[in-house]
């Protein structure tokens, strides 16, 4: 190909990549540093990871995050997949407007979502807790699921469904035996993204969580506010590795069409 990359573009890009990734890598490396205050390397240790296990708030936060993540993922994935199916397979009045509406939660700043839900829950006097967090996370991640699943549905070969019907399968059978198996990677990657959004979310959660229902990001935020200590590096490393694995999985699923 005749389009060559100018050298400076390569060098410049390398610097930008460094800017994007070096801070995270440094953070991870120093989670193994055997010194509480210094940023000089004082030897390798798992000490900070052991410390995490001794902290009940972190374990409770992790538990809350997993429960919230699990529940909101299931709900958002089911509801989102249904919406995607309707959009891909049916013409209905107001479709364009509806699609536009789906994008609104994505562009809405999280802080707006958070406080508007806080007001709602206060108004109808629902006590803040895991349930309210799940409600909020579903509302925020639903649109992402729809978009991921819809992309997969639109890339799917419709003639397969038609072939199934010609071969005698009714709509319901066709759906379960042909559509769903093909759609599975899309659904799964939608679910992974929903889980990641939920697992990582701090801003919205900070408004709709009660005192006994702090998720992991809430706990970490508290730690960061109080003091910069290597345990935060350790828990950050764990969070990063989990999300990286999830994103990698989702990425593979989307790509292996």
């Amino acid at each position: 190909m005749s389009v060559r990359l100018p050298r400076w573009v390569l060098g410049f890009s390398a610097l930008v990549y460094a800017f994007l990734h070096v801070p995270i890598l440094v953070l991870m490396v120093f989670s193994f540093n055997d010194s509480k205050f210094s940023v000089n390397w004082s030897g390798f240790t798992f000490n900070w990871y052991h410390r995490l296990l001794e902290r009940p708030d972190i374990l409770r936060g992790l538990r809350a995050s997993l429960i919230v993540g699990g529940a909101s993922t299931v709900i958002a994935t089911v509801l989102g997949t249904l919406i995607a199916l309707a959009l891909a397979r049916h013409r209905f009045r107001g479709r364009t407007a509806f699609e536009g509406f789906l994008y609104v939660p994505i562009v809405t700043p999280e802080i707006v979502v958070g406080i508007s839900l806080l007001i709602l829950f206060a108004l109808v006097k629902v006590p803040l807790g895991l349930t309210t967090i799940v409600i909020a996370h579903v509302a925020f991640s639903l649109s992402f699921v729809v978009i991921v699943v819809l992309a997969r549905l639109e890339g799917m070969d419709r003639t397969l469904e038609e072939a199934a019907m010609i071969l005698g399968a009714d709509e319901v059978t066709t759906f379960w035996k042909v559509t769903v198996p093909q759609l599975w990677p899309g659904i799964l990657s939608g679910a992974l993204l929903a889980f990641t959004i939920s697992f990582d979310d701090f801003v919205i959660t900070s408004f709709v969580s009660g005192s006994g229902s702090s998720t992991l990001p809430i706990v970490v935020y508290g730690m960061v506010r109080r003091n910069v200590e290597p345990s935060i590096n350790a828990i950050s490393t764990i969070i990063l590795l989990v999300t990286t694995a999830l994103i990698y999985a989702a990425d593979r699923l989307v790509r292996n069409k």
Binding site: L27, Y221, D251
Partner: peptide, 20 residues
């Protein structure tokens, strides 16, 4: 992938990395 990754990783953690 190296661009998508930070796109999805915890904003809080990334901000903490800046503090660090």
């Amino acid at each position: 992938f190296l661009v998508v990754l930070p796109f999805w990783t915890s904003f809080l953690v990334r901000t903490f990395a800046m503090i660090f």
